[in-house]
Every structure is written in structure tokens, then in C-alpha cells.
Design a protein around this nucleic acid. Structure first.
Lengths: 331, 331
DNA sequence: CTGAAAGCGCTTACAG
DNA sequence: CTGAAAGCGCTTACAG
């Protein structure tokens, strides 16, 4: 029942442990004869190296933590983007033959758990996504001195190398598109104002309108569907004459569509709607949603590259990925 | 830069390594004086036990693998239920102070990687979700002899203890509800027929109709939105007179709504629609979707319980969780 | 209650 | 090219 050890293999093959270790690790300096003997014993015994023992001596674990830090309400972990991050990051890391250890930090206790886990040497590096403005975790993790890269710039640790999409440019594209469609009174539903991504998208919206001498009409949501619904109601109350809305993510755009439907406004005839992210659901709204896309898979690849770069040079520079406007029927 | 070791703490505190180890592990047989000394040294040095070394001697890792096995197309990892599983499982495991190691197995190579990882002793047990009928992974993992529990009954390893919702009963509820609304020609969109959950939902549909002398109208999808859309088109072609459809999950129901809209059928006036899962998006469809709910959080809790039971007694029996019909405006 | 010693299963200089 | 030995950082009987 017990797993065979290196020693058992050595005994069976009639060689030393050193030799077995060399063969198992692909060392080329082993005589074919010996290698043959060892491989046979490995097969017969079904030997698999104990990676804990190996890690103890090599000081590497081959694992990377993917830390998702969320406010207690769990905003992000309910977002389809969450699956996208997890999936893309896993695939990219797998390609680099690293293992992903997912850690959800949704409370103060779990944040402590994450710190201890990282401090205990379980992982070689960390990939971070923090959806929580005041989150102290990025800074705390930073202090441990491990290689670390982030999806988006973390508020509490702006010096962490990060990958982000061009939030400002993306918002610009969205608003310029609405302007080009002849919309006059363009509102926005912003994300939480303590997040840098929200700030940037809001800035892009504001600046674009200001450039054309138009005024901003703003409501603030928290990136959930329900907050988009509420924000839209608020906007309709503030300015019943609005003819377009840019939601800072697709989930809020979906909520906004819902509110508009209840209010009896037709989309896009009365009000045009544009989102951000291009989640799958954007294809299935009624009408299908115009949105700003920045593929998560690209971001994951970039974050993994940053991390690998950190392992080698110790240096890594932020990466900003371009966005693309996807025009559908809601605008 | 190097992390302090047990030995360094012992030296600083002027005691033996044994004593430090005892204090760190909460052994109560240590004299308050000594304990005091050790704790001070631990703080001064910022000592955190190296968990790799600890695992090597204790033979436990305190980690559980959450293995998500998907067909190459990645059906499940695009499903909102995926986040729900991951999130719920993480929380439940955290409550049991175990660490989650997420492994996505979406190809043959990655399946091998998962096996090796488990064989290498990285985890104490595995939680499995297999969305792939012919998946050989569950059986392979079973053979390693580790404690293992599954979300849903795996086709290739039916003896693995599992937790599932009452798929048959849930489908029954859905169809009986449609019948009680006076619907006469009730179609269904099934999931992949090689998955047990699909089979059970289909059986529930079939039996309920058969009991009332009605005939089945069936199209097969693969649990994605787009397949629901296509299946709905097919059904409308097969039987233009249908007045209701039961989709085996919400994603396909969303696709069906899309197809019905294009075909100019009103929901629920012309065709009533019922889904399965009760994902968040079901609240935001137009009209909001009637569906069958079985909370993922409960399932996760149950799977974790099975696993913990396995660690203790070595025995665990399958658990079937009840479903609940959530009636909204689509039916 | 405390400490010296052995050992968990590997890797890696160091001799030969 | 191969092997004996030391060591990675802990825990745990075993004496005292």
C-alpha cells in the first residue's frame, strides 16, 4: 500500500540511490545499461518521486498561487470574468509546467490564511487579482519578497508588475462610438470608485465627453447585475432624456437592460447601451450587447510571462493590452 | 533574506529544537517559561514553519485537489456553475482548514499531469467534477487509493462516493409544473447523453409525460447556450405546435429563449420555458426564467463532508440533495 | 517536562 | 560514470 521510494528502486535495480535519482531527473551522464536497469525497476514498482521530499531539497515547489482577493460580498467571484481568469491562468501556467494553487481571499481571516500559506513556502510565486480597493493583501504579499504579478494594478501595491487592458482607451472607444451614432446625452454606470480599473474607465468616459463639450451623467455601481439595474433607474430619474449609457462592465449593462425594459425604453431606439468585457452572455442579451473586449487569455499569458521573467531577471514591466470594440445591436 | 528555521529559533531562545517544535504545534506540556522564550524568539525572527519539511515527516499535505475534468471544448469551465463549484468548494474546504489545489483537466496531456500530481503525493484527497462522459480520469484517480469524492456520479467510476442533486426529481417537478399550467406539447432539450445527470433529467421528463399519456419531443444539446439555441430551432421545426420546453440547464434555456425570440414566439404566451440550475443570469433573462434549483453551496459542503468522513472511517455513502422549483415569468 | 537522535525521501557536491 | 555521505527543515519516539 505504501508508495515505493527511491531506495526501493535502487535496491531492485542493484544500483545506488544517486544513480536512480539521476535517471529519474533525466541526467545524461548515466550509462545506457544502468539507465535501462533503473527504468525497468521504476516501471515494475510503479515509482513516482515524492515531490514533497524533492521540494525540501531543491527549495522549489513548482506551484504558483492564484490569489483572488474579493470584498466580503464576493463581487468578483460571481463574475463570469472570474472563470475566465482562473481558466486562462491555469492553462498558461500549465504550458509552463507549473501547478496552480487557487486561493480565494474573501474575508480578513482568509487573507491571513493566504499570507501564511505563502510564507510557509508552499509556492514559488503568486499571481494576484484583487477586486477590492482597500485591500491590504497585495502589499502584505509584496513584503514576502516572492515573485508576484497582478491582473490589474493593485491599489495597495502599485509597484507590483501588472497586466491590464487599456481601460482608458476602451472607455474612449465606447463613448466615441456612441457619439458617432449621434447620441447626445450619454450617461455612464461606473464600477466601484476605489478600484483603479473603474477610475480609468470613468476617466475615459469623462474626457471623451469633455472634449466634445458634453457633460457627464454618472451613477456608481459595483460591477454586479443588480447594481447596474439600480444605477440605471437612478440615471433615468436624474436625466429622463438620456439616449445612451456606457456601463463599465457587461454584468452592469445586463442589469441596465433589465431596468430599461421595465421602464419601457427600447434599446437601441430610445437608449443605446454599451458594456465592457465581452463576456459570453453579451451575445445572448436582447438585443445583443455592444461591448469592449480585451481577451482574458492574452492577459493570463502576459501575467505568466511577467512571472517567468521575474524568476529569471528579477525585472518586469507593466503591460497594457489594447481593447477592441465589438459592435452588436444594442447601440 | 533566507527564512529562519526551527534551529535558528532554538538557538535564539536557548532551548532545543524539540521544544520549539512543541510550542509551535501547540503542545501543552511545555513549561510557561520556555513557551514564553520560544514565542518571543519566533516573533523576533518572524519564524514560519516550512510546511514542505513538515509534510515530509507527517505525510500529510493539508491540501485537497479540486479536479475539473472537461471535454476538450471546455463545456463546463465556461459555465457559471463552474465558478459556483470552485467558490463553494474553496469555502467549505477552508472551513475545514484544508487548502484547495485547482486542477483543470481539459486534454489527455493534462489528465496525465493530474494523475502524476496526485501520485506524487501533493494532496491528501481529491474532489472531482467530471463533465465528460467517457472520461477515464475518475477511474484512474480511483486506483491511486486516495480518499476521493465527486460532484455527480462519474461514469467511469460509479463506486466513487458522490453528491448529486435529485436530477430525476427535479426534471419531474419542472414537467409537472408545465402540465399544471395547461401545457400540452412539452419538449425538452437534453444535455450530452453520455452524462448521467443528463440521462436522469431526460428520464424524469420522459416518465412524467408517459404517466400522463403524452409523447416526448426531444433535442439534444451539450449544456452550452449555443447548443440550446440550435436545439430550440430543431424542435420548432420538428413540432411547430409545441407550447413548452424544459431545458436541462439554464444556459441552454437562455439559448432557447434567444431562438424563440428570433422565431417570433412569445414567452410564456406561446411557449413556456423552464431551465435547471438557477444560475444568477436566470433572473435577468427576458422574461425571467423559471428553473430548478439545487444550491451548489450545499453540494460543496456535502462533498467535503464525504471526504472528511473518508479520512476518518474510510466509508462514505452517496448523497442526493433535493431540488426546488423556482417559478418566474417564463412559464 | 526537556533534549539528543533518528528519520521522512529526496538531491548534490565530493571522491574515486 | 558511479557511489557514500551530508543535508534540506521538520517531527517524534525514546531516555532521562
Amino acid at each position: 500500500m505504501k508508495r515505493p521510494t527511491l531506495e526501493a528502486v535502487a535496491a531492485r535495480a542493484g544500483v545506488s540511490k544517486s544513480t536512480v535519482s539521476r535517471v529519474v531527473n533525466g541526467d545524461t551522464t548515466v550509462t545506457p545499461n544502468f539507465r535501462e536497469l533503473v527504468l525497468r525497476a521504476v516501471n515494475e514498482l510503479g515509482y513516482v518521486p515524492n515531490s514533497v521530499a524533492r521540494s525540501l531539497v531543491t527549495q522549489r515547489t513548482n506551484s504558483i498561487a492564484l490569489v483572488v482577493s474579493d470584498p466580503p460580498a464576493g463581487l468578483f467571484s460571481d463574475d463570469p470574468m472570474f472563470s475566465a481568469v482562473v481558466r486562462s491562468a491555469s492553462r498558461a501556467l500549465e504550458a509552463a509546467s507549473k501547478q496552480v494553487v487557487l486561493m480565494l481571499a474573501g474575508s480578513d481571516e482568509s487573507r491571513v490564511r493566504v499570507q501564511e500559506y505563502v510564507a510557509a513556502g508552499h509556492v514559488d510565486g503568486v499571481m494576484l487579482v484583487s477586486f477590492y480597493g482597500a485591500d491590504p493583501l497585495p502589499a502584505a504579499l509584496m513584503r514576502m519578497g516572492l515573485p508576484m504579478a497582478s491582473f490589474g494594478k493593485p491599489v495597495s501595491a502599485p509597484s507590483v508588475p501588472y497586466v491590464d487592458n487599456d481601460n482608458l482607451g476602451g472607455a474612449r472607444q465606447a463613448v466615441e462610438h456612441l457619439l458617432s451614432r449621434g447620441r447626445r446625452r450619454i450617461a455612464t454606470i461606473s464600477g466601484p470608485l476605489d478600484m483603479i480599473a473603474s477610475q480609468d474607465r470613468l476617466t475615459g468616459y469623462r474626457e471623451t465627453l469633455r472634449d466634445t463639450g458634453r457633460r457627464s451623467i454618472i451613477a456608481v455601481g459595483d460591477f454586479t447585475r443588480v447594481s447596474g439595474d439600480q444605477a440605471m433607474c437612478q440615471l433615468l430619474e436624474d436625466d429622463p432624456g438620456l439616449d445612451a449609457v456606457f456601463a463599465a462592465n457587461d454584468l452592469m449593462a445586463i442589469g441596465a437592460l433589465h431596468a430599461l425594459r421595465r421602464a419601457g425604453r427600447r434599446v437601441p431606439d430610445d437608449v443605446a447601451v454599451v458594456g465592457f468585457d465581452d463576456i459570453e452572455a453579451a451575445l445572448y442579451t436582447d438585443p445583443p450587447l455592444t461591448t469592449v473586449r480585451s481577451p482574458m487569455a492574452d492577459q493570463a499569458l502576459a501575467v505568466v510571462s511577467l512571472l517567468l521573467g521575474l524568476f529569471e531577471d528579477g525585472r518586469a514591466d507593466p503591460v497594457i493590452l489594447p481593447t477592441e470594440l465589438v459592435i452588436r445591436e444594442s447601440s
